[in-house]
Design a binder for these strands. Structure first.
Length: 266
DNA sequence: GGGATCCGACGGTTTACGTCA
DNA sequence: TATGACGTAAACCGTCGGATC
């Protein structure tokens, strides 16, 4: 239950973040490249299976059959192995595995050693083929089903952790972008003020982010106002040097925002 | 080619158990 | 010490997609 709520909360958080990041996506897409663990498949939605999940499936009967089979297996195995499992999870004196001998599910805490071995195996490969599963189960004195379940849960935990990391990272990206956006807007305002007093402008050093407009070949802050139609954004990184520290933002976007509010691009 | 079945994986949920105020 | 709230993790369930027949 708690886990479920946590997932929902996380999802909401992520959605919220994405919503606020969407305007910056072209830049973000590039900047994400080095930021998030590249050894894993990206979590960023597209191939989320649940989106395509259909309520009417024909597999339920199969699942039911499988379940029955599992129960059967489980029952047999429980008889034979429960003792061995509880022996594995000794953790001091009687630590948890002693009590409730009901017919319902009985949860057995894995011992530290068992967990360690499982962890080590998981580091090597996050999924197991049937042979590995059997071998591991035998080695740890567990049922194969237990090993299977452990790996499933472990994968879920890893994914959850990674989601949290992603979330944090995106949050920071968002903050940086907001900050940079503010700074640029301020700069635009300053440039505007300068434009209104040309004699002052003569003696000023150029602003830090002056860039050449790709279409009209003039300095961005001054030129594009004369031909707004030509100030369409090119690539956000077209003039960025690699390794540059500043957050990649299209400088033309800020200009557009102020200069043509009535004419959003198609 | 298309349906039936099996199987493994996954997301979500339930529940036993440990911890802490 | 007892207890209830809470977090964690093992186990379960339903579903999906790929493989095979």
């Amino acid at each position: 239950m708690a886990m479920g709520n946590m997932n929902v909360a996380l999802l909401m958080k992520e959605i919220e973040l994405y919503e606020c990041i969407i305007p910056f996506l072209p830049s973000l897409e590039m900047s994400l490249e080095g930021g998030i663990d590249v050894n894993r498949a990206p979590l960023l939605y597209p191939e989320d299976d649940n989106a395509a999940s259909s309520p009417n499936s024909t597999v339920s009967s199969i699942s039911a059959g499988k379940r029955a089979e599992r129960e059967l297996m489980g029952d047999h195995e429980h008889e034979g192995e429960r003792t061995s499992c509880s022996q594995g999870s000794d953790e001091g004196d009687g630590g948890g595995t002693g009590g409730a001998d009901g017919d319902g599910r009985k949860k057995l805490r894995l011992s530290r050693e068992q967990s360690m071995v499982l962890e080590e195996t998981f580091k090597e490969h996050s999924t197991l083929n049937p042979k590995q599963k059997l071998a591991l189960a035998e080695q740890l004195n567990l049922r194969p089903r237990q090993v299977e379940v452990w790996f499933q849960n472990r994968r879920a935990r890893t994914k959850l952790k990674q989601t949290e990391v992603d979330c944090e990272y995106l949050k920071r990206c968002c903050e940086n972008l907001t900050r940079e956006n503010r700074r640029l807007q301020k700069e635009v305002q300053e440039l505007r003020a300068l434009k209104l007093s040309p004699q002052l402008y003569k003696n000023m050093s150029p602003p830090t982010t002056l860039t050449m407009c790709p279409s009209c070949e003039r300095v961005a802050a001054l030129s594009c106002s004369s031909s707004p139609a030509t100030s369409a954004p090119i690539g956000p990184f077209s003039r960025q040097k690699s390794g540059q520290q500043s957050v990649p933002i299209n400088p033309w976007a800020a200009l557009q925002m102020h200069q043509e509010p009535a004419n959003p691009p198609p």
